[in-house]
Amino acid sequence: MRPDIGGLTAAFFNAYNVCIVPELLGAFEQAVLLTVWRLAEEAYGRAILRGVQSALNRQVAAGAVYATLDRLEQKSFIDSHVEEGTPVRAGRLRRYYRLTAAGIKAMNESKAALEQMWGGTKWPLESKA
C-alpha cells in the first residue's frame, strides 16, 4: 500500500523545501489501468488482455498483463473479486478488476506530469541538425 504523505510529514518536507514527486506509472501500467477503467464492470483477465493489445496496437503476452495486474493490485491501485465462469471457459472463475481511489489518483498524476513535461514543446519533434 502506498503511504499517504500528509500532515506532519508534508509539513516537514515543506519546511525543508523538499519536492515530493508522485510515483509515476510506466506506459504499460497506464495502458493496463486505462483498459480496466474503460471496461468498467467487464474488466476481467481476457478482456483486459484484448483491451491492452488494442490500446497498444500490438500483440501482448498474457504473462506481462497478469504480472502487471498483480503488481498494481499489490500497490492497491486496483482491487479484484471473482465471479462464476461461463461454459466456454469450462465454468472456471473469472477475476474482475476495478480501479481504486489510489489508482485513479496515480493515473491523474501520471497524466498531469506527462502534460507538464511536454508543455510548450512543439510536437512531433524534428531533428535540429
Partner: peptide, 16 residues
C-alpha cells in the same frame, strides 16, 4: 489464487 481464473481466460480466448 490464479489457477482457475488465468487458465479460464486463456481457454476462453483459445475457444472463442
Amino acid at each position: 489464487r490464479d489457477r482457475e481464473t488465468i487458465s479460464g481466460d486463456l481457454l476462453e480466448e483459445y475457444r472463442e
